[in-house]
Design a protein around this nucleic acid. Structure first.
Length: 699
DNA sequence: GCGGATCAC
DNA sequence: TATGGTGATCCGC
């Protein structure tokens, strides 16, 4: 079980090398979509071709750029982790190996092989239902969804690489004869109810994950009728087919996590039984790719593979010392339990929903009137949904997505519980207002230096969303919350809603959150690593890279930069200020009347003590003479932004010359550029710095 | 308590 | 032309 650091690095180095030499010739290979992930019915797909088509259809788009940006962050995370990995001493490794071994023994002790779980999953459910109601679709490639997004595709379509979560216009490129059918949830709910009647025969307390899948504890049925689980699965699937005319697949295993994996093995219209035997489980898990495990998605897979060379569940155990060294206890426990083939086996209790939300995507706009109208509609939809369920809550969260696919959330927690559309809208408006174009923010009055410039220029949005949480009647104390699980509970018990169709079952990968543990203390004693904070090193660059985005063609999205006097102590103060600044947007901003730009401008003036731009005769810019009538409100705002930014740029560069001597290298592109932000560790002696000029040079 | 990220369906 | 909506959880402030 002892692993040499060098081996890990070699493994990941090899993994990195694979795609590299061909990247220039075949750029699509470096675009990691989720679409090519192996799915049932797609074994024979020409993955290279699909990858190429997806790439060709996507490249250059805002969506694509955002994906590239995200991938760059992950890559950097991986690089950072690999470096930290290499810096682990033999003593560190020996220590973490001990920690890991102890934990694995504890987890093993919690193994429960007494229950038999069955996971049933309808085959291409929506597509199958549509084919039932329109048999002419049979045998033809078909997908349910729109040109923007597909919910599912039938098996004929999957042969072309078409699959759920793929945009329709790409699917059509892959399969020109693809038939599109719009979603019809009433129909799916009707058939879902029929399947659930069948499920109820085998476990009246079955757990409905979504419309098309469920977990059943068939321990009692097997015992009472003295039949094998395999027969129950056969019978259940036959029953479903009889009642609905739809096929499904089933997986049987000692716990829910494995049952879910098993139901995928012989899809469609098949089943797989994993016996309640430890050896059988360990063998099964040994070669199982980690991505098959619920809770391990694209990013986690990428990181585990790239940093530690982990591909299979078995390797989770082989690399357990590294896992314990770099991940939080709850995460490490989850990963190790995956390596042991452990999962939840309990009969969960009822769980209540914790939030309710409504969101809509629309064509890009920065029109405040339009945005407010959308917000109003959302508030009404949300309020209606809440009243249907008799809910009221005190935390309201606004979600925004910019035209560059950057997602932001802004929340406020109120004194009283709200549920009416008027109340929701009132507070939502304040949250939104604080996000609408604010010309310039200038921070750090204490320092004589101009410390931070945060110029937020025109924002273009493509999505608004509202969410209410902290419901009236919720237990708010985390300590007394019975749903808070210890790790032992995590493995041996659980609390998933039963028969509650509106909730996905996410309990299989619930993590535990224990603030203080043996492990955390141990790791601190080593003084080498913060085991709870593996990714922190680049979280920063994440933030900074985003803020470095400048889009000239569609208007500038957002510009942020910072300068400093290059002492870490000062950074501390600066980051504090920055933190409170973004907070300002939601707290102070709410209390500020419309036209909070005034406030910002006043600050700027008091700080810079320079002349402010005026509209001469309410018509002409006093600084450059450009003519803009008063009715051009937005254009005027943008124009004043421009002058403010220009002014700050001058100020900035003069300060920069005086007090910021050092520059970081490697600023060829946005990915490698770094500057300080509130989430960065302050331990680094020297911070990178991006001159504000960068943002304003003409391209 | 807030905000970003990840994940599942 | 064009890449969703709902809900949950975790982590680090």
């Amino acid at each position: 079980m002892i692993v040499k650091g060098a081996r890990v690095l070699d493994g990941s180095a090899n993994a990195m090398m694979k795609g590299k030499g061909t990247e220039d010739d075949r750029p699509w290979q470096s675009y990691h979509t989720v679409y090519t992930t192996a799915k049932a019915g797609m074994e024979l797909v020409d993955k290279e071709k699909v990858q190429r088509v997806v790439y060709e259809m996507s490249k250059g788009s805002k969506y694509f750029q955002n994906e590239e940006r995200k991938e760059a962050f992950i890559k950097q995370k991986i690089d950072n982790l690999r470096i930290q990995c290499a810096n682990l001493t033999q003593e560190d490794l020996a220590h973490y190996q001990k920690v890991a071994d102890r934990r694995i023994v504890e987890l093993e002790a919690s193994r429960d092989l007494s229950r038999i779980w069955l996971h049933v999953d309808m085959d291409a459910f929506y597509a199958a239902v549509e084919t039932l109601s329109n048999p002419t679709l049979k045998g033809k490639p078909m997908a349910v969804g729109s040109m923007s997004m597909l919910s599912t595709a039938n098996y004929e379509a999957r042969k072309f690489g078409v699959r759920a979560a793929m945009p329709g216009f790409i699917a059509r490129k892959l399969c020109p004869e693809l038939i599109f059918v719009p979603t019809d949830f009433k129909k799916y709910t009707y058939y879902s109810d029929l399947t659930r009647k069948v499920f109820g025969r085998y476990d009246p307390n079955f757990i409905a994950g979504s419309l098309d899948e469920a977990y059943l504890d068939i321990t009692e049925v097997c015992r009472e009728r003295n039949v094998k689980s395999e027969e129950i699965a056969q019978e259940l699937r036959a029953g479903v087919y009889e009642e609905t005319g739809l096929t499904c697949s089933a997986g049987v295993a000692p716990n829910r996590l494995l049952a879910k994996v098993c139901s995928d093995i012989n899809k469609p219209n098949g089943q797989y039984v994993l016996p309640n035997d430890r050896m059988a489980v360990m063998t099964f898990v040994s070669s199982l790719p980690i991505r098959k495990i619920g809770g391990i998605g694209k990013v986690t897979e990428h990181i585990l593979k790239g940093v530690f060379g982990i591909n299979t569940c078995e390797q989770m155990l082989e690399k357990s010392s590294y896992i314990c060294a770099f991940f939080s206890q709850s995460t490490a426990d989850f990963f190790c339990s995956v390596g042991l083939g452990l999962g939840q086996t309990d009969s969960p209790q009822v769980r209540f929903r914790k939030s309710i939300s409504s969101e809509r995507t629309f064509s890009a706009t920065k029109d405040e009137v339009l945005l407010h109208k959308k917000l109003e509609e959302l508030a009404e939809m949300l309020s209606a949904d809440m009243q249907k369920e008799g809910l009221s809550g005190r935390t309201l969260t606004l979600k925004l997505k910019t035209a560059s696919f950057e997602v932001r959330t802004r929340a406020v927690t109120l004194q009283k519980y709200i549920s009416s559309s008027e109340d929701i809208l009132k507070h939502a408006k304040k949250l939104l207002q604080a996000e609408l174009p604010i010309s310039v923010r200038l921070i750090d009055y204490e320092s004589s230096h101009l410390c931070l410039i945060c110029a937020s220029i025109t924002n273009i949005f493509i999505l608004l969303g509202l969410r209410v949480s902290q419901f009236n009647g919720d237990k708010c104390s985390a300590k007394s919350d019975p749903t808070q699980k210890t790790i032992t509970n995590f493995i041996t018990s659980g609390d998933v809603n039963r028969n509650c169709s509106s909730f996905p079952d996410v309990a299989d990968h619930d993590f535990v959150s224990n603030a203080e543990t043996d492990m955390s203390i141990d790791s601190r004693q080593t003084g080498q690593l913060d085991w709870r904070d593996p990714f922190d090193g680049n979280y920063l660059s994440d933030v900074d890279y985003q803020s470095c985005t400048v889009q000239k063609s569609d208007g500038v999205e957002e510009v942020q930069t910072s300068s400093n006097d290059a002492t870490s102590s000062h950074y501390s103060g600066l980051t504090e200020v920055l933190g409170s600044t973004s907070y300002l947007g939601q707290v102070e901003g709410i209390n500020v009347k419309n036209g909070s730009n005034l406030l910002e401008d006043e600050r700027l003036d008091s700080c810079c003590q320079e002349k402010t731009m005026l509209w001469l005769n309410d018509y002409k810019c006093s600084l450059c003479g450009i003519e803009l009538p008063p009715s051009f409100v937005e254009e005027r705002l943008e124009h004043s932004d421009f002058h403010l930014a220009e002014k700050l740029q001058k100020e900035e560069s003069s300060i920069h010359q005086k007090s910021v001597p050092s520059q970081s290298k490697g600023q060829k592109d946005g990915v490698t550029r770094q500057s300080k932000s509130k989430k960065q560790k302050l331990s680094q002696k020297e911070g990178s710095y991006t001159p504000i000029d960068y943002f304003f040079v003409k391209k």
